[in-house]
Amino acid sequence: MTATIGYDDVEVGTELPERLFPLRRADLVRYAGASGDFNPIHWSDRAAAEAGLPGVIAHGMLTMATAARLVTDWIGDPRALLEIGVKFSSPVVVPDDDEGATVSVRGVVEKKLDGNRVVVNLTTRCRGEKVLMASRATVRLP
């Protein structure tokens, strides 16, 4: 989705269609390199088990960035994303196989603000379970 969405094109209740984002172990390694977060719970099954986790988990900030992609792809300009906030509610477990995990993200316009700003509520799930709560993005539209 690269079409530019304008402020007048959306109303409260406008839905952003669901997108599915795959996360595989290789993605976790790439993110660790980019972020500098090499905590072994993000790549070692043994370390994840020792920490009491059900398996290797995606970085929380990677999960948040994945949710943000729904919005930045929808608006067509990542610079228009002014703010994003989430609460982490459940980890994204990424199996060591060819499929990994799939993160599902949906959005709905919650409100329109002055200055061509729009607040979008996001619903982010993995394996049917919400992985982010109170997830909102504010964007400025043309």
Results as ranks from 00 to 15, higher is better:
residue 1 M to H: 12
residue 6 G to I: 09
residue 7 Y to D: 02
residue 13 G to F: 04
residue 18 E to W: 05
residue 21 F to S: 05
residue 28 L to E: 00
residue 28 L to A: 02
residue 29 V to C: 09
residue 29 V to K: 08
residue 32 A to F: 01
residue 33 G to S: 04
residue 33 G to K: 10
residue 34 A to T: 05
residue 35 S to C: 03
residue 36 G to C: 07
residue 36 G to K: 01
residue 40 P to C: 00
residue 42 H to A: 05
residue 47 A to E: 04
residue 48 A to Q: 04
residue 48 A to F: 00
residue 48 A to N: 14
residue 50 E to N: 14
residue 51 A to L: 06
residue 53 L to D: 04
residue 57 I to A: 09
residue 59 H to E: 07
residue 60 G to Y: 02
residue 63 T to I: 12
residue 64 M to N: 12
residue 64 M to D: 09
residue 68 A to K: 10
residue 68 A to T: 06
residue 78 P to L: 14
residue 79 R to A: 15
residue 80 A to M: 14
residue 85 G to S: 15
residue 88 F to Y: 07
residue 90 S to Y: 09
residue 90 S to Q: 15
residue 92 V to W: 01
residue 92 V to I: 04
residue 94 V to R: 04
residue 94 V to P: 01
residue 97 D to W: 03
residue 99 E to N: 14
residue 99 E to P: 05
residue 101 A to G: 00
residue 104 S to K: 12
residue 109 V to K: 06
residue 115 G to T: 00
residue 117 R to G: 06
residue 117 R to F: 05
residue 120 V to T: 03
residue 123 T to E: 10
residue 125 R to P: 01
residue 126 C to W: 02
residue 127 R to D: 13
residue 128 G to R: 08
residue 128 G to H: 02
residue 131 V to L: 06
residue 131 V to E: 03
residue 135 S to D: 10
residue 136 R to F: 11
residue 142 P to S: 11
